[in-house]
């Protein structure tokens, strides 16, 4: 294992010192990270540079500085590399006059598959679009359009799948299905890179996250590790108990606790020492005869990590 959490031991996609600027605007600034088999979430608010980074991974955009390698080669240098890559762009990228089946079969034909129709049928079935496969894409809902794009990206069984906000516009059932599908593909050994600005989505898909904020790599690794690395930011802990005011006053006397807020039976604490707080809470609860019904760190959710990363912006 490598020590840098932004890098993986067996990378299929390597990003080294990559920057991209459009005129005066810097979209991505000196990002170094890598992606390997499994699912990685690329997280960041809208306009953070996720799409630019993903487009550089696929070769649609060339870096202004730095290098992107797909399985050791520049993505644009050899077009045959695209047999190994599937890409779902954020934008529409659909031919509205074609049916979903024709569109996916077109993708299969262009990839050089021997039986494009059969491959298209299988990909369409994978995204559960079989019933609507013979309808023109122009009449599709956003969710159906997304699934059509996913089917076209999957039709040639690529080893590397790059998905830019693939769950946009999908309903909860479709979302759950697609999340399961991406997880399955990752478990089969494919490199799956999924960008999203919706934290819960990423959290449901993966533990490994690359967070981009203002074009810069803000954090990388698993969500809990990112949180632990932020030692200068206090942990937030939720406690539900009886005698809450009494208990809050006692906790405030402890050096490990920075602040406490009380909301009926709920206490919200800020501490720099999560482990130490556990023993203090149990000791004080025993001494004061306080019954604790819940003790939970609020911070190891992606949302809170993300809030810290983009805090103040």
């Amino acid at each position: 294992m490598t020590e840098n959490p932004a890098l993986v031991a067996d990378p299929t996609v390597e990003v080294t010192g990559v920057s991209k600027w459009f005129g005066q605007k810097v979209a991505v600034s000196d990002v170094t990270c890598s992606f390997g088999p499994g699912l990685t979430g690329l997280l960041g608010p809208n306009g953070a540079g996720k799409t630019t980074l993903l487009r550089m991974l696929t070769g649609l955009i060339l870096p202004s500085q730095g290098e992107v390698l797909i399985k050791g080669a520049l993505p644009r240098a050899e077009v045959d590399r695209y047999r190994n890559i599937g890409f779902v762009p954020e934008e529409s990228a659909l031919y509205n006059t074609l049916t979903a089946r024709q569109y996916v079969a077109y993708a299969a034909t262009l990839t050089g598959l021997s039986d494009p129709e059969d491959a298209a049928d299988r990909a369409i079935e994978t995204v559960e679009l079989t019933e609507d496969a013979n309808r023109q894409i122009g009449g599709f809902s956003k969710g159906m359009r997304q699934r059509t794009k996913v089917a076209a990206a999957l039709v040639h069984d690529p080893e590397i799948l790059v998905l830019d906000e693939p769950l946009n516009g999908t309903d909860p059932v479709q979302r759950a299905h697609l999340i399961g599908l991406f997880g399955r593909l990752a478990a089969e050994g494919n490199t799956v890179i999924v960008s999203s600005h919706v934290l819960q989505e990423v959290e449901r898909m993966t533990d490994r996250v690359i967070a981009i904020v203002d074009g810069k790599l803000a954090a990388a690794g698993d969500i809990a590790a990112i949180r632990r690395a932020m030692s200068d930011i206090p942990y937030r802990v939720l406690i539900e108990c009886n005698k809450s005011r009494h208990f809050a006053a006692a906790l405030l006397d402890s050096e490990a606790v920075y602040s406490v807020s009380v909301d009926n039976s709920r206490l919200r604490l800020e501490t720099s020492d999560l482990l130490g707080l556990g023993s203090i809470v149990s000791r004080l609860a025993r001494d004061l005869d306080v019954r604790i019904s819940k003790f939970a760190p609020e911070d190891e959710s992606l949302e809170s990590v993300f809030r810290y990363l983009v805090g103040g912006r």
């Binding site: 487009r55 696929t58 070769g59 649609l60 077009v79 045959d80 590399r81 695209y82 047999r83 890559i85 890409f87 762009p89 934008e91 529409s92 990228a93 659909l94 031919y95 993708a107 262009l110 990839t111 050089g112 076209a152």
Partner: peptide
């Protein structure tokens, strides 16, 4: 129509 990416990300010269 933003369909260029569909075309150029295929193994075609």
């Amino acid at each position: 129509d933003n369909t260029m990416s569909f075309l150029v990300l295929r193994p075609i010269r």
